[in-house]
Structure formats: C-alpha cells, structure tokens
Design a protein around this nucleic acid. Structure first.
Lengths: 337, 337
DNA sequence: CTGAAAGCGCTTACAG
DNA sequence: CTGAAAGCGCTTACAG
C-alpha cells in the first residue's frame, strides 16, 4: 500500500500538506489539493486508520464486551441489544468492535482494546474488569446493574424487580392464586431480581410463591428456550396446579403454546401466559397474541451507547439510566374474576 | 495511561526488554521479568493495542461490512450470519469489527479500516468497493455471489437457484399446480436467482409461473416480514387460486399462518406452506411444524470467516464455497396425489 | 540475556 | 498557504 510519504514525494510536497488535504484541518491551495488528490488516486493511496488513530489517540470505535456462550449462540436479548448499540453508534460515526474473546487467564497478557470506549454486558459480582478499564482510562458503560450496586460506574438496566412485581400483581388481581414461573438461568442477576419482585407481589396479596413453582432455565437441561417452555409444561401441568405461567422470554412462551396444543390446554381458558419478551413482532404473531412485558432490549443497547458517547466526551460523568419496560396486554391472559 | 517508556525507566531497563517481557518473543531473565511485571502492575501499564498494531502491521481484527438498513433493523438472516462469523473468528483469536457506517459520498474521504481482512455482505452489481479492497491490499471475502460472477474474488453463497427449483419441483410433484411465491425484495440478487429457479421447475412440469403469483417484499409496503405474509394471504387467497405458498423466510410464514387462522384456511389441508428459513427453532415451534429449507445463514457466516482466515494467511488464494441448503420436510405441506 | 536506534504511517504545533 | 521535525507507543533487526 502506498503511504503518505509516497504521495508527498511524488506530488512534491510535504507529508503535512498531504495530511491536510485529506483531513481538511488547515487550508491548502486549490492547485496543490488537486495535484495531491491526483497522485493519491494514481498510487491508490488511502490514509491508514491505525497510524492515524495512534497519532490522534482516537479510534472512533466503540467496544462491546460480550462473552460468547459455549454453544456460540447469541440470545434474542443480546441480539436486540447489539442492534440498539449499532444503530446508535453508527449514527454518531462510531464503528462497533465485538469483543467476544474469552478473558485471558494471565492478567499480564491483558492488553488494551483498540477502542475509545467500552460497553460491557452482564457484569459479574465484584467484577475486576471494571477497575481495569478505569485504570486504562477507557470510558465504560455497563448493561445490567453493577455489583456492589453503589459503584461509581455508568450503567443502564431494566427495572426488573418492579417489573415482575407488576406482572405478578396483575395476575393475582385477576384472580389467579397459583402461578408457574419459568425464570431465567439462576446465575444471572436478573433472575434473582425477578424472583424477588414476584415474591413481593405474592406477599402483598397474602399469598406465597412456592419454590416448586419457580423453575430456572439451564443450558444443560434444555436444548433451547422453546424446549424449556415445552418440557416444563409437559412435566408439571398435571402434577402441580396453576392457572397461569410467566415465562422468561417469548421463545419460552412459544414452547408453552406448543405443549398446550398437544395437551389440549386452552390458552387463555385454562392457562394464562405472560412473557418477559424481547421480540414484539413474535408476540403479535402468536395465536392467541401473547401478553408480554416489552423489555426493549434494543432501547437498552441504544441508551448504553448514548451514555458511552457522552462519557467519551466527558469521562467524568457517571450516569445511570433505567429503561422502563412496559406490560402490553394482548390475548393470552384471562381474568378469573 | 502508563506507556512502555514509563515502565522501562522505572524498572531501569530498555523498552525492548519490557516489550519482550510481554510478548515473550525473546527470553528475558527471571529477575528482570519479575521486576518489569511488578513495575507494570504498579503503574497500571497495559500494552497499547493500536501502537502494537502499527508496528507489527496486524490488528487481529476481521471486519464485517454490512450496510445498516434505514430502519436500523437487522434481518434474521444477517443476525444468524454474524453469529457464524463471530463464532469462527473468535475461535481463531480474531475480534470482529462491525462496519455499518454508510459509504462516504466523497471517495477521497475513504480511509482504510483497522482490520486484517474484510467480509462484505450483499455485494452490489459492479461493486467498486471490491477493487478498492484489492488496491488497499485487504483480503476480502463476499457473502453472496459477485457480479460479474467470474470475478477473481473469494465468496460463499447458497445454491439459491437450485434450491427454489427443488422446492418448486417438490410441490409440483405433490400435485400442486398453482403456487404463490412470496419472494424477497426485488433489489436483491437472491430474489432473482430464486424466481428463475422456481420458473424452471414450472417449465419442467409443463407449467408456467405467472407474474401475479410472485410478490416481492418491500420495506415501504410492509411493516414487517410477518405482516408481509399476513397481508399477502388476506389480499390474494380469495382472488387468486393456489394451494401452496412459498415464503421468503420463516417470519413471513408466521404471518401466513396467522392469516390462515383468521380466514379459517386449514394448513396443510387447504394450503401448503413452505419457507426458505433462517431459524430452525422457530419452524419447529410452529403448529403445524413448518416445512422449510434451512438456509444455514450461520454456516454461511462461519464459512466466510474460514475463507477469510485462510486468505489472511495467503492473500493469493481465491476460493468459493457453496453452502448446500437442505429441504426439511415437516408438517405444513400436503400431497395432493 | 539486554540495549540503542530505526521504523510502523500518521498528526500537529512551530516557524515562515 | 506550506514545510521540517517531533511525537503517538509499540517492535525488531543488529550488536554485544
């Protein structure tokens, strides 16, 4: 590849001049500009992004740190989230680097990412990486709440606890007294938040959320989210007694619907279904249309990107943003009173 | 951020030594290694990825050039594809840069991407960018066939023409004589390939594929793929006469199913449905289970990544790989004879 | 096993 | 409006 030096020499000008022609940061005469451009074209010269980044200490790249699942499948939530991040970043001139590389065991091998800022998914308990980014001077925004919750770090999150409280309250007010909860994987903070929100709703109604009515998704046990929903209904509907089920996602609800058809369970006649959903379109296509909480994973991603862009301008700001999810009433729930 | 110079000075060694401690490219004595590591830790030093990339002229980043739709929504196909690319790249130590930035109008503004190679989606007719990457010396792999087809460039693609021939042949052999084709958007090369494959099947059976039985998806007309399927059936089922419908994707089929339920059309009794699908899971959850061609978008992405990794090692290689899609018979098609 | 120095390809005060 | 030179933070022959 031709370099700025080649162009400068052939055009008979200095490198600084060539640089200015491309960056337009200082005025260059018309004649010189034309000559430089011509030579550049002739040589097939394109400014080297890396060299430029090193010089100006900016890459115009936002990183997205996202551990890749062993089976390599992104969840619908992640996908929607990424979508939001990309949309927001690209509208601000940022590219997005997907950093899915597994953490190196040897922390000394850890090198900086070629990014101006980082969005990190699923922060862990006492996540050491947060301090490391701080030390590297890389602006950071989390998706999901940090632990401990009072850390001085920017993040976006859903109001998960309140959300499942609201869902539980809705069902209980409708007259349901026993509810099956197909929760997320137990190692996710969101699963904890949701269960405690639901339990609170039960308490307020003078009821109790029994352990056997809460099931957690498990990659080992379930082939897919839909299969998780399907099998859970098949295994429990005759054994336990419930009139409503809350599912982790719309895909899980899809499996519930399939099991219901096979077992001749009428939805919502015999069984009400409500999902914490990531895909509005899918919920609308189901028959009956699925009542769901729209988590707005995409909005979460977009908000995270927005916070990051802000933070890259002023690293001092620390802000939180809670994306309010919304319960959308469709046709899969029944009022018992 | 601390630099290699800071560490070198404080540890009383040269930059080269510090470099070697981290890269392990030449042996450094135990004592010195320890001293350097200690100082590095104390200073919070992490090697700068950009500077390193400039020096070794390698970034270990693979680019994914993917124009972002105006509405900013990735199709299921793109998502699956990306998934494949990520999985393959990350298993080889590459990060993935999503380059969704719109092409700059001014080609002089065009700068190199900070990548070692590039995967490009949806190459256009006589795509000028292909020559540009060649000129920049950036290894390139296309997803989708190039135009003209005989270009010396690596690519992966589905065997789209043959595929729709096979689907058509299957339906016609089953006794269907009139088929509605809900094709992809007409500006995509894949739409052309598919229609010609289907038309060929009709000819072989002494029939003709009539224009009014081929509809193309349009972002302007249809709110979503599912809505496209839904409206198409509502608008045509009573007016035209067909016993089978081929849909662009499984999401389109979802809309077809919903319309069928509302219009009391029995699937597959009155209407057979077959989809060119990207999401096996979804097809299996539909009732009846959806007969579909598994496009293996993910495989396409993984193959593209593999070709690219090969090409980054030896830029001279030019290879093509056709991912054979497979027709999976489930429950949504009926044999009329 | 270690150091000094040139080089990767840009940008940017400083000077004119 | 333009040039010379230092600098961005690394790596790597070359020499010892």
């Amino acid at each position: 590849m031709a370099t700025i030096d080649d162009v400068a020499k052939l055009a008979g000008v200095s490198k600084g001049t060539v640089s200015s022609v491309f960056s337009k940061k200082r005025p260059i005469s018309k004649e010189v500009t034309e000559r430089v451009l011509e030579v550049a074209k002739e040589l097939g010269y394109y400014p080297n992004h890396i060299a430029r980044s090193l010089a100006i200490r900016k890459t115009m790249i936002a990183g997205l740190k996202m551990p890749i699942a062993k089976d390599g499948v992104m969840s619908q939530f992640e996908i929607q989230m990424i979508n939001g991040v990309i949309k927001e970043c690209s509208s601000h001139g940022y590219r997005v680097l997907l950093d899915t590389l597994p953490e190196h065991d040897d922390p000394n091998q850890f090198s900086t990412d070629p990014v101006d800022g980082m969005i990190m998914l699923n922060p862990r308990k006492h996540d050491a990486r947060i301090a490391r980014y701080e030390q590297m001077g890389i602006p950071l925004v989390l998706v999901g709440r940090p632990d401990p919750p009072d850390m001085a770090v920017s993040y976006v999150d859903n109001n998960n606890t309140h959300l499942s409280y609201e869902v539980g309250d809705y069902l209980l007010r409708s007259g349901h007294t026993s509810v099956l909860f197909l929760n997320a994987s137990s190692d996710m903070t969101v699963a904890y938040d949701r269960e405690s929100g639901l339990a609170e709703a039960f308490e307020r109604h003078g009821l109790q959320l029994h352990k056997e009515y809460v099931i957690n998704y498990s990659r080992k046990l379930h082939a897919s989210p839909a299969e998780y929903g399907y099998m859970s209904i098949r295994n429990t509907f005759r054994r336990l007694s419930y009139t409503a089920v809350i599912t982790d996602t719309d895909r899980v609800a899809l499996g519930v619907f399939r099991a219901a058809r096979e077992l001749n369970i009428d939805i919502p006649g015999e069984l009400s279904v409500i999902a914490l959903s990531n895909d509005t379109k899918l919920a609308q296509e189901m028959v009956p249309k699925l009542t769901s909480v729209e988590l707005s994973a995409e909005k979460l991603g977009a908000e995270a990107a927005q916070l990051l862009i802000e933070k890259m301008k002023d690293p001092a700001v620390v802000r939180h943003h809670i994306v309010q999810a919304e319960l959308v009433y469709r046709d899969s729930c029944r009022q018992l009173r």
